[in-house]
Design a binder for these strands. Structure first.
Length: 191
DNA sequence: CTTAGGATCGCCT
DNA sequence: GGCGATCCTAAGC
């Protein structure tokens, strides 16, 4: 079965993959933790980089699934996405936050920060902690330096509106591990 | 608790 | 030329 890593089918839609990624342990060079927050970006999605078609920057989104799409945000931060869906459709999942587990000392050094709560709580922060940069753009997630490990038990996932965008602001494609203290921002659930 | 401003630059119109 | 799928710090309530 192609593109099946850590029991996740990367050929599925972005929201499905985003939900399935919650609880998966992500390591880069052995450093990282458990994914506690993701966002889905799909074709036909006005908030997606792929919305207006293929460009130099978003080209990896139109490549094979289960590969990395890394881009620079606001000129100074890196953001890590996992490409998913059918080849050429332009879907991806933004990895927004991790619960630090492995290589915590190294992540603290890279971030210049001791707090474990804020170590990987945000797409830019976790890329700094894991030393992810343009060098990782287009890389296969099934091969080193990446490692994905599926959780041992089912995860309780909650959904809400995505953060930091100006279009399609109500689409509930932000996914988080329920009650996790390691989110970039608290997710306000509907009651 | 919320909000405001600055850093900083590649990408797209 | 304008504007971000951000983050940090500071100040106000």
């Amino acid at each position: 079965m192609p593109a099946l890593i850590a029991n996740i089918d990367f050929f599925a839609s972005a929201p499905e993959v985003a939900r399935q990624l919650i609880g998966v342990t992500l390591l880069v060079e052995g450093v990282g933790g458990r994914i506690v927050e993701t966002e889905a970006y799909a074709p036909e999605d006005p908030a997606s980089h792929s919305f207006s078609g293929i460009t130099q920057r978003n080209a990896p989104m139109f490549g094979p699934p289960a590969h990395a799409y890394v881009y620079r945000s606001y000129g100074l931060h890196w953001c890590l996405n996992f490409v998913c869906g059918e080849v050429g459709h332009g879907a991806a999942v933004l990895i927004r936050a991790l619960q630090p587990l492995e290589g915590v000392t190294q992540m603290q050094q890279r971030r210049g920060l001791e707090s474990s709560r804020l170590l990987c709580a945000g797409p830019g922060r976790l890329c700094q902690a894991l030393a992810i940069s343009a060098a990782h753009n287009g890389m296969n997630l099934a091969a080193l330096p990446f490692m994905l490990i599926s959780p041992m038990t089912p995860q309780v996932v909650v959904a809400g509106a995505r953060i930091g965008i100006s279009r399609a602001v109500t689409t509930p494609w932000r996914f988080a591990l329920e009650n996790s203290p390691y989110l970039s921002r608290p997710l306000r659930q509907k009651k």
